[in-house]
Amino acid sequence: MEPTVQVNDDFIKANTNFKELILALKSGFASEDINIPNRHHHLFPNPETGVDSTLLLMPAWHSGKEAGVKIATVSPENERFGLPSVHAIYILMNAVTGTVKATFQAKEMTAKRTAASSALASAFLSKENSTSLLMIGTGVLSTNLIRAHASVRPIDTVFVWGRNQEKAETICEALKHETFNCKAIASIDEKISEVDIISSATLSNTPLVLGKLLKEGQHIDLVGAYKQDMREADDEVIKKASVFVDSFGGRKESGDIFIPMEEGILKEKDIKGNLFSLCLKKTKGRTNDKEITLFKSVGHALEDLVAASYYYEKFTHE
């Protein structure tokens, strides 16, 4: 029996090549052999904070090869405890024997695969000559999203906004050796109308990306707002943009899609495609340089299985 290995966050941090991971995800979304049942999404009370936490169970399997499941919790008020909002573990198994091949500390893996998926979408949806990016949010995803987007587009200027200016400055300090310039800004309005790509990863309940401030040709990447009552973009954004999602199954999980659909602002037929249809070339991405495109991500179990396989190969072939 093959030994079970443990892959920690430090290994994942040190061994991520976004171009490689994006290509692996593209291959995974283009495959019709990976099975992804609906994920379990459960809210449970958190009396100490007064804000519900979320339990996610995300299984996937590639018959005859590998299977896996991620167990994750999201606790929006964890900042008061000095902890990240998301905690997760991933179990990778041999799909033939059912034996466990590896367990992963999945915080970094989740951040990396989420960022790589956004960059994969950007490769289809943003303008090829996009050089500027606005990052909204200063959580663990922010540096990953910036690096991932910069791996598929010639980004030379990055602006970072967060509710805490010091955190935004810390993000830029962490990126000071990258090929692009990074600057913390005091308000979103300062730069949102100027940049080519807007990436938002927050737990906001009210829209931060406003349609009235958008310009032609922008690409909007919405990664946060994972519950039905959360929103990062307002209705005007949805009306102006060509909307894409990571998977059609998750369109009712986030308020950015759920609320406009409930109110009749966005109909199911208005969603242009998802990562499966884009990678299988069943859907066309951006059609012209004036089009505003939007990608809404809620996370997908295929991304976890592909990422776990990617890091397992690296770990066992060091």
Score class of each variant (00 low, 15 high):
Tyr90Asp: 07
Arg147Cys: 14
Lys239Val: 14
Glu108Trp: 02
Gly139Lys: 06
Cys279Ser: 13
Phe180Gln: 01
Ala116His: 06
Phe315Trp: 13
Ala201Gly: 04
Gly299Tyr: 07
Glu190His: 07
Lys215Met: 11
Ser193Arg: 12
Ala88Asp: 14
Tyr312Cys: 04
Gly285Met: 04
Ser63Asp: 06
Ser151Arg: 14
Leu57Gly: 06
Ser204Asn: 10
Ser117Gln: 07
Gly273Tyr: 06
Val69Met: 08
Asp304Lys: 00
Ile220Val: 15
Ile257Leu: 12
Ile91Leu: 15
Val209Met: 00
Glu190Cys: 06
Val298Pro: 01
Arg39Lys: 14
Phe11Ile: 06
Leu275Phe: 04
Ser27His: 05
Phe244Trp: 07
Glu262Asp: 11
Phe81Val: 11
Met58Gln: 07
Ile136Asn: 11
Ile197Val: 15
Phe159Ile: 11
Ile12Lys: 03
Met93His: 15
Pro3Arg: 10
Glu253Phe: 08
Ala119Trp: 03
Val195Gln: 02
Arg147Ser: 14
Glu178Asp: 08
Val160Phe: 01
Asn164Tyr: 00
Ile89Cys: 10
Ala233Leu: 12
Met230His: 08
Asn94Cys: 10
Gly299Lys: 05
Gly224Cys: 02
Tyr310Ser: 09
Ser53Thr: 08
Val5Cys: 09
Thr16Leu: 08
Lys240Glu: 02
Arg113Pro: 13
Leu222Lys: 08
Glu169Cys: 04
Gly224Ala: 02
Val209Ala: 03
Ala60Trp: 07
Glu216Ser: 14
Asp304Cys: 02
Ala184Ile: 01
Lys65Cys: 10
Thr131Asp: 11
Glu173Met: 10
Ser117Pro: 03
Phe124Lys: 10
Lys240Pro: 12
Ile292Leu: 14
Thr138Ala: 09
Leu43Trp: 05
Gly285Leu: 01
Ile136Gln: 09
Ile155Thr: 09
Lys240Ala: 04
Gly28Tyr: 00
Asn35Gly: 01
Ala168Glu: 00
Glu194Thr: 12
Val298Thr: 10
Lys296Pro: 00
Lys112Asn: 14
Asp256Ala: 08
Ile259Val: 09
Lys107Arg: 15
Ile220Asp: 13
Thr143Lys: 15
